[in-house]
Design a protein around this nucleic acid. Structure first.
Length: 680
RNA sequence: GCGCUGGUAGCUCAACUGGAUAGAGCGCCAGACUUCGGAUCUGGAUGUUGCAGGUUCAAGUCCUGCCCAGCGCGCCA
């Protein structure tokens, strides 16, 4: 097995679903509840609820904010817009909740006739008139189209996100998509919530494997030219590694050479370093091609090699603070060297959940994973003074993170409570038939004859399928544009499939499912976005035609409206046209559903950041796209329901909603790491 | 053995952290003036939320005990 890094051999890189342990959760909660990170946010939904909450607060003599906090979306299946469960208020007031709900319904109905207040048992339900919602939300959306997906909760705070972290000289396997795209999305979500974000790729670019590679390279007399002309340089290196490893089994001399080269590499030998750099460059070139395809970038590429000579101070500090001990339990003869590894005896120092010590130094003096993470955490804190540091690594490594987070605390690090392991479940592949000792069914890692599925292969297959669909559904699109759309849609399908469910779930990967383009998929969101964009494209022509028709029949109501807007229509200024539209003309229930779905995005964003869970936004976007699709499709059956309909004033109002929905859908897709093409 | 996760419709998953009649997609059945884009929409059938207790106005959600599945537990990362 080559390389170190976050994502090691398949059996360790993926472990089944796990949550962070009690201890870690406590630490995380401490970080969460720190006054630095919690800040109330005024969501768009609160814009609607605020006046009602104020009325109730006045009536009951309570704080408006306290009442507002109790108002929220109703339970699923309830056909109302907002809901105030009265249990808590009733208890505080020593009243009967049902009676209180009845009383409040009457009070609210009198003061806000458009809010549709009604008591349902102990619940006070609000069912707004669509225009009442539009009048509040449309102006806010016009002022800041991306407002639903912007928040200031992270203002002034810095987050480091450690993600992807592949091993040099190996391909990106399909399961690397998890850390890569969860981390990418979290980076964008944090930024949208006001955080300053540092994206870090902790490359697995160090380890004994490089000694073997170099030994093999020298032994076979390979040249740089051979590597560079190889059809795939990573495959070339991988194959070399496999050959060396097999040869070493038969010939111990090779293993010796490998050890010597490892030593030379560590000592900074220029030939060893030169070859190491060549291998690293070749790998990075391939990684960056795939990152470009996925739209992922990093601010820092400091990997394990960078920290190789920077662990001395941490080790020394651990020792001077008497946190280390040499483990004596291992039975070793004097010839075999010192008795044991250097450990931090967590069971003795902390107790509670820890049953095993953490190893910081091998018998031979070499350092270990945890030591490197400690050194890196110090380094990053020095550079960025982070308020939160995320490690997007599979759940199988949760013990490792629990341990070194605890050691950071023992060392008195100020950042100890700001560390978060963002764990995720493994990728399982479907096997139709038993074989290779595997039963038929879900199994980790490999499929189709035991082959490891490469990320690049899956993406290419997805793009091929998307290209075929674009060609079939929209033959007018060709050439470069078709290619760009095929990429956006194909990659989008795979990425969304990875993000739409809770990250701790294992991902059950079937080609046919992951590459589906209908139902709850990335392309479904992209399609809704493209339909909205299509309507916007046609809007100017629509108004121009209406304007010309009105000139022929100048006395209608529509003609007066159009004449008033003549400058905007003639210059094609949609922004101005929709900006002057009357939101009260949005009277359809389907329009209200779109507005409410938009308004819920803000809290989805904040909850996504709070729980490091992109799926929260993914689910909210699906709800928005469903509302949009329902609204637009209704127009297929009834011309009066179309955005570009017969009444220009209504059309302008609906276009304002189209613009708002498209802006948020596009931005939401971007926050998940998907593209939002205007046609597809 | 110790520990950590999870178990919700045939399948894949939600359920805004304790709220109402547990919701979606896929699949299945029946529909929508060839459409501002049908990669869409509307309707239907499918549930003892693994089992048993407990807590309370209220439990898929919290507590306890079982059952089942997966993963982790010393010089890899």
């Amino acid at each position: 097995m080559i390389g170190l890094g976050r994502i090691a051999r398949p059996t360790r890189s993926q472990s089944s679903r796990r949550r962070t342990s009690e201890w870690t959760s406590t630490a995380n909660r401490a970080g969460l509840s720190s006054p630095r990170t919690i800040r109330a946010s005024r969501t768009m939904l609160h814009l609607l609820a605020q006046p009602i909450a104020a009325t109730i607060a006045r009536h009951l003599g309570r704080e408006p904010a306290a009442v507002l906090a109790l108002v929220g979306p109703p339970a699923k299946g309830q056909a109302v817009d907002l809901c105030l469960p009265c249990f808590q208020l009733a208890r505080e007031l020593k009243r009967n909740p049902k009676e209180l709900a009845d009383e409040l319904a009457a009070v609210v109905a009198a003061a806000h006739p458009d809010a549709g207040a009604a008591a349902a048992g102990p619940f006070l339900n609000l069912t707004f008139a669509p225009a009442a919602v539009a009048v509040v939300l449309i102006p806010a959306l016009r002022a800041e189209p991306l407002a639903p997906l912007r928040s200031q909760v992270g203002k002034g705070l810095t987050a480091c996100v450690d993600f992807s972290s592949p091993n040099i000289a190996k391909h990106l396997a399909f399961h690397h998509i998890r850390s890569t795209m969860i981390g990418n999305s979290l980076s964008r979500l944090y930024a949208a919530a006001g955080w300053k974000v540092v994206r870090i790729n902790f490359l697995g670019d160090w380890g004994t494997a490089f000694g073997r590679l170099i030994a093999g390279w020298k032994r076979e007399g390979l040249t740089l030219a051979q590597l560079e002309t190889a059809p795939d340089r990573v495959t070339f290196l991988n194959a070399l590694y496999v050959r060396v490893s097999q040869a070493a089994k038969a010939d111990p001399a090779i293993e010796d050479e490998a050890r010597q080269w490892s030593k030379r590499l560590e000592d900074g030998d220029s030939e060893a370093r030169g070859l190491w750099q060549i291998f690293k460059d070749a790998s990075l070139a391939e990684f960056k091609r795939i990152y470009a395809l996925l739209g992922v970038d990093f601010d820092s590429w400091k990997g394990e090699a960078y920290y190789e000579d920077k662990m001395g101070p941490v080790l020394a500090e651990l020792k001077t603070k008497n946190l280390t001990s040499v483990d004596l339990r291992t039975e070793r003869t004097p010839e075999e060297g010192p008795p044991g590894a250097t450990i931090v005896d967590l069971p003795a120092l902390i107790g509670k959940p820890f049953k095993r010590p953490m190893l910081v130094q091998r018998v031979d003096g070499g350092t270990l994973y945890a030591t490197r993470d400690l050194a890196a955490a110090d380094d990053r804190f020095r550079d960025f003074a982070y308020d939160r540091s995320l490690y997007v690594v599979d759940l199988g490594q949760s013990l490792h993170f629990q341990q070194w987070f605890a050691v950071a605390k023992l060392l008195g690090r100020p950042y100890a409570d700001r560390l978060r392991h963002v764990g995720f479940g493994i990728v399982l592949m479907w096997n139709d038939e038993a074989g290779d000792g595997l039963e038929a069914g879900w199994a980790r890692g490999r499929t189709r004859g035991g082959k490891v599925m490469l990320l690049r292969e899956v993406l290419e297959e997805a793009i091929d399928r998307a290209r075929a669909v674009v060609a079939e559904k929209n033959p007018a699109i060709a050439g470069d544009e078709r290619e760009a759309i095929a990429r956006a849609v194909g990659v989008g399908a795979v990425v969304f499939n990875d993000l739409k469910n809770g990250r701790t779930n294992d991902v059950k990967f079937k080609f046919e499912e992951a590459l589906r383009f209908d139902g709850e998929t990335g392309p479904y969101l992209q399609f809704a976005h493209a339909r909205l964009a299509s309507i916007e494209r046609k809007a100017v022509d629509h108004f121009t035609a209406a304007f010309n028709a009105a000139n022929a029949a100048p006395d209608s109501e529509a003609s007066h409206w159009l004449a008033d807007k003549a400058p905007d229509i003639l210059t094609g200024d949609l922004a101005s046209l929709t900006g002057r539209a009357d939101p009260a003309l949005l009277t359809l229930d389907s329009e209200k559903q779109v507005l409410l779905a938009l308004a819920k995005l803000t809290s989805a964003l904040e909850r996504a950041v709070d729980s490091d869970e992109p799926s929260v936004l993914a689910q909210a976007l699906l709800a928005l796209a469903a509302a949009v699709s329902g609204w637009l499709t209704a127009g297929n059956h009834d011309e009066s329901l179309r955005v570009l309909g017969p009444d220009p004033a209504v059309t302008a109002a609906r276009l304002a909603l189209v613009r708002a929905a498209r802006a948020s859908l596009g931005e939401g897709l971007r926050l998940l790491g998907l593209q939002a093409p205007e046609r597809m």
